[in-house]
Structure formats: structure tokens, C-alpha cells
């Protein structure tokens, strides 16, 4: 697994995305390097979800380019992007409520053809989230919010993806669960996955991230090593409640 060797996994260049007449992203650029946790923080409505959905191909880029491992993926279809190695845990979890926990994980493995590999991935997910193993036959809609978030993350780990996009994984969770989910993100990263983490919970995100970008109404205004960004007075005032 490529660790932090400085190679660029994801490059977003001058990205513009609109909803009708509203420009949600006004030409943002950023990079995510191999083995790192990069966080994109910003207030509600800043354009974080829009950014991730455009990378995944769910939204169309109006201008600009997105490269994954040097290949252009701008406006490719979502299923092609997943096959290339990007997995996305969407905002609000978006598990399949009427499928069982196990079926949800199998859907996560849609791109895997090898049965053995699929089985191994499932075991690994169950090891990471023992609760999911206990509840594998239950329909996912009956899980608690925290368990659903675990399932959403577990489902994304059923692929061979190198890059994991996480959209506000801590949203709506009790403080203890927030701790747990951030711990899991660190573990996933240590196992070799590169992570782009979108969060409103800037404090936690900056604690685990290597590098950070601040998004404000469609523009990136601040960037730097996560520690520097956390120490930035503007960031402290606006996002860290200090």
C-alpha cells in the first residue's frame, strides 16, 4: 500500500459547479496526496457536499478538471469512477433501509467479482464493526443512527478503492459515537487508504487530518497543514468557537 510518498491521488482544478443560476463552487482547486487524511471544512452551505458529489460524478462540473491518479475523471459516470477506485460515504448515510445489513455490504462490493475477496472484505468490516456482524440479518433501517453510520462506512470499505470520500460522518451522532467514528477513520487511513474528509465538526477533523482546506461559500480561502490551520486565528474564531 502506498503510504505518504507525496504522490498526488486526487487533483481538483478550478472546479465550477452550479445549481441552475446559483454557483455553488466558484472555481476551487485542491489536491489530496497518497496516504493522507485531507479535510475540507466549512459552514453549512459552503459547498462541501457539492464538491464530493461532483468528484463522484453525481453532479456535473461546469468548468474545471478532476484527476484521479493522473487520469481525468471529470464528468465520468459514477459507476466508472467507483471502478477506478474512489468510494464515497454520502451525507446522511444513505444506507438501503429495506436491505439487510449483509445485503448492504454486498451492494458495497458490487464492483468485486471475486467471491473470496468479497468474503475477506466482509470479515474485515465485521472485525472493524462487530455490531454489524451481530446484526447482519436485520434490515438496515432498524439500526440506530450510529450503527447506520458504521454501516455506511463499512459498505464503502467493501470496494478496492484507494480513496475514501467521507461527507460529515459525525453528523447527528452523540459525542461518544463521534469519537468512535473518528477513531475508525484514523484506522482506515493507517491501513493504507487515502481520505478526503468533509466536516462541519472542524475541531475533530483538524485533529486527525494531515492537511486542511477551508471552504467558504464556494471558494477555498485558507489551506495548510492541519495543525497550522487549527492555529489560524480566523479559523479559531469562525470554526473552533474560540
Amino acid at each position: 500500500m502506498p503510504k505518504k510518498d507525496g504522490s498526488v491521488v486526487l487533483e481538483v482544478k478550478d472546479l465550477v459547479v452550479s445549481y441552475g443560476a446559483i454557483k455553488a463552487l466558484k472555481g476551487i482547486s485542491f489536491t489530496v496526496k497518497s496516504g493522507e487524511i485531507v479535510t475540507l471544512i466549512g459552514a453549512n452551505g459552503a459547498g462541501k457536499t457539492t464538491t464530493l458529489r461532483t468528484i463522484s460524478g453525481l453532479l456535473r462540473a461546469e468548468e474545471g478538471h478532476i484527476f484521479y491518479m493522473g487520469d481525468e475523471i471529470t464528468n465520468k459516470q459514477p459507476h466508472k469512477i467507483v471502478q477506478m477506485g474512489i468510494t464515497h460515504v454520502p451525507e446522511g448515510r444513505r444506507i438501503f433501509p429495506d436491505l439487510t445489513v449483509r445485503e448492504n455490504l454486498e451492494m458495497g462490493a458490487w464492483t468485486l467479482r471475486d467471491k473470496k475477496l468479497k468474503q475477506d472484505k466482509m470479515e474485515a468490516v465485521f472485525e472493524l464493526f462487530p455490531r454489524l456482524k451481530e446484526r447482519q440479518k436485520q434490515s438496515a433501517g432498524t439500526l440506530s443512527g450510529g450503527e447506520q453510520q458504521m454501516l455506511a462506512v463499512g459498505r464503502a470499505l467493501m470496494t478496492e478503492a484507494q480513496l475514501v470520500l467521507l461527507d460529515e460522518p459525525s453528523m447527528g451522532l452523540a459525542p461518544m459515537l463521534v469519537e468512535e467514528i473518528f477513531k475508525v477513520i484514523t484506522e482506515i487511513n493507517e491501513e493504507g487508504k487515502t481520505i478526503l474528509l468533509v466536516e462541519q465538526n472542524a475541531e475533530m477533523a483538524l485533529q486527525i487530518a494531515d492537511y486542511a482546506y477551508v471552504l467558504e461559500v464556494g471558494n477555498i480561502t485558507i489551506e495548510g497543514d492541519a495543525k497550522e490551520v487549527a492555529a489560524n486565528p480566523k479559523v479559531k474564531e469562525a470554526y473552533l468557537g474560540a
Binding site: Q77, P78, V82, I95, F96, P97, L99, E106, M107, R155
Partner: peptide
Amino acid sequence: TRIGMAMRASAQDKDAARLMGIDI
């Protein structure tokens, strides 16, 4: 079946299904 499961998943949440790599 695998495809049946994908049909159910797509009926529940099309975007989430696409994020699984399903060609909707």
C-alpha cells in the same frame, strides 16, 4: 440474485446505488 438486490437497492436510493458502482 445479485441483480435483484441491485434492483431493490436502486429503488430505495438511486444515488446511493450509483455510489456502489451500479450502472443504474
